[in-house]
Simulated assay, not measured.
Amino acid sequence: MTGGEATGGGVAGGDTDRRAYLTEHLDAVRSRLLDACRAADRDPSGVTLLPVTKFFPASDVAILRDLGCREFGESREQDAAPKVTALREAPGDDVRWHMIGHLQRNKARAVAQWAYAVHSVDSLRLVDALQRGVDRAREDGVRDTDLEVYVQVSLDGDTHRGGVDRGELDAVADAVAQASGLTLAGLMAVPPLESDPDAAFADLAGLHQWLLRSHPSATGLSAGMTGDLEEAVRHGSTCVRVGTAILGPRPVTSP
């Protein structure tokens, strides 16, 4: 396929320069991730690279899919939904979408229509909203699998930045595990501002080990971004969420 050809379903394949840019930067991040796994004596197959395509067009997703990516992160339902529709129309679609941004309860029903996983669940009320959303998606015939849920935990107690206080982690995790249509995948966290990522991810790893005592199947750990994926992998991350290092600076206007 040349850079200007379509990938099907009206999703433009992107121009040649954009394809070359994404190829170069994806290769560089894959190399970083491989090196991080080797340094941590971990099997690279145990760590998912999740390109974060928020603010970028469906054509970029199509290029990355051509380059072997099958899972993508989005943070706003209103931006994600058109991309999901466009990629569904592409032949052989096998893409999984992850909601990684803050999720309002009134968007839960819409997100349950397309998301494979939600990484930012941080309240009992959101758990309930997602359960009802999954039930409705099944009634509508657009979903036949459970929704994978990562409970986002606040490492510094500042829940205004997202994440449940660690004192409430057990209750939210239990609610997810008991909800029909939801599967407790594990934990997610973002290091506090100006914190030492190594220390933050060590703290998160300790919380994860604590969670596994009561929920042994919740083995997922969504941690690490462009600037700290090596530290996250060292402390057990199973999913690194990388945007800027692959796609570049945010566009002046979002799609």
Rank of each mutant, 00 (worst) to 15 (best):
F55I: 04
I100W: 13
H160G: 11
G224Q: 08
V47M: 03
D158S: 03
L33P: 04
A62E: 00
T48W: 00
A110W: 10
V118L: 11
G8M: 13
K54I: 14
L169K: 08
E24R: 09
E148A: 07
P216F: 15
L207F: 14
T226K: 11
G163N: 06
L64Q: 14
E231P: 08
S123D: 09
R241Q: 15
L212A: 13
M99R: 12
V84I: 08
D17E: 07
S154I: 03
E230H: 01
D27E: 13
V242N: 00
R161L: 10
T145C: 08
G206Y: 03
W97R: 04
K83E: 09
A117R: 06
D15P: 12
R132D: 15
V29M: 05
A12G: 07
R161W: 02
G14M: 02
L169M: 15
Q178N: 12
V242E: 07
V153Q: 03
D27W: 00
H160D: 15
S154F: 04
L26G: 11
A223N: 09
A36Q: 07
G10W: 07
E77A: 15
A173W: 05
D93Q: 14
A20T: 03
A218E: 05
A28V: 07
V233D: 07
R234M: 01
R125D: 08
G92R: 01
T145N: 12
A36P: 05
A108L: 08
D198E: 01
